[in-house]
Amino acid sequence: MLNIDLTGRTALVTGSTAGIGLAIVKRLAEAGAHVIVNGRSQGRTDEAVREIQNAVPGAKLSGFAADFAKPETLDAVAKAFPALDILVNNLGIFTQASFEETPDSEWQRFFDVNVMSGVRLTRQYLPGMTERKWGRVVFIASESGFNIPPDMIHYGFTKAAQIAIARGIAESVPGSGVTVNSVLPGPTRTEGVLKMFEEASKKTGRPAEEIEREFVPKHRPASIIQRLIEPEEVANMVAYVCSPLASATTGAALRVEGGLLRNPG
């Protein structure tokens, strides 16, 4: 029987008060890791910590409220947590907008949040991991990094960047005992996605549940599973790749997208 044991390891999961990030924290905590929960506000962070403690009795948790899109947060997190064994760069935003209507400021905002937050944190913690000869860095990218959505080009480009960055960082630390990978979820049932369905419901007058049911068949018809992915399904992959069991998996773009990518090369 395979056993994912992260006892004694310290992990930071950015953007982890809801959705995929929250599910990842739960899985890592179940495996015995001390997990740092991160949200932009203290209230949301504290609420998420309480939720996980209720779901995972005995979980070792800390909360750290900060917006990692801002460079000045690095000093604070490095002081609070000088060393990490596991870094999951999950922080991310998405919106639907046409290419013609997306201004420079929005491209820059998406780059700062989705890309530079992970770049800065990895640059902060990678040297310690290589010195200790063990570490795990994971970028939560997306199938949209290969399959760029025409109504979210500004989002897709950030996910393509994460995939490229993760591969490059992995190649920069050969033989170090540190693995660096990207994980590519497909359309996932998160609060943000459900909100998107609710907004569509208000515009069209159709039930949000009906819009959700038809979303994958209509907008991601190549999906083999023909449904939204659950956050826990993504978290399962992340927990594995963060574990000692995945010691030979690095520089990879790991797909949890229901099979909709036919040829991601």
Rank of each mutant, 00 (worst) to 15 (best):
G168H: 12
G128M: 10
V216Y: 02
I140T: 06
R132Q: 15
R206Y: 01
F111V: 12
G128N: 12
G177N: 05
T158I: 04
I169S: 03
I165M: 08
N114D: 13
R123L: 12
A160F: 08
A160I: 04
E191G: 15
P217T: 09
P187I: 02
Q108T: 12
N114C: 03
M129V: 02
A166L: 07
D112M: 13
E214S: 12
M116N: 12
P150T: 08
K202Y: 00
E209A: 01
V137A: 03
Y125C: 01
Y125A: 05
V113I: 15
I169T: 07
A208R: 05
P187D: 06
P150A: 10
I169V: 15
W107F: 15
V193H: 09
R123I: 04
T204W: 00
G118M: 10
Q226G: 04
V178T: 13
H219G: 01
F139P: 04
H154Y: 13
V113E: 04
E191N: 15
A160Q: 09
P150M: 14
G145A: 11
A222Y: 14
T179K: 11
T122E: 03
N181S: 09
H154Q: 13
T204S: 15
R213L: 14
M116C: 02
F215Q: 01
Q162N: 15
S201L: 02
H219P: 00
D151W: 08
D151F: 08
N114T: 05
L194Y: 03
R136S: 12
H219A: 09
I153M: 12
E214P: 00
E209F: 00
G128Y: 06
P174R: 03
R213C: 01
I148K: 04
T204P: 01
I148V: 10
M152C: 13
A160H: 10
K133N: 12
P174H: 06
E212W: 04
M152T: 12
V119T: 09
H219E: 07
F215Y: 14
S117A: 15
N147A: 14
Y125L: 11
K133M: 02
G135D: 04
R120M: 13
A222K: 15
Q162I: 14
I169F: 10
R136Q: 12
R136G: 07
I148H: 14
H154I: 07
G205N: 11
G186D: 11
V113P: 03
E210Y: 03
V115I: 15
L121Q: 00
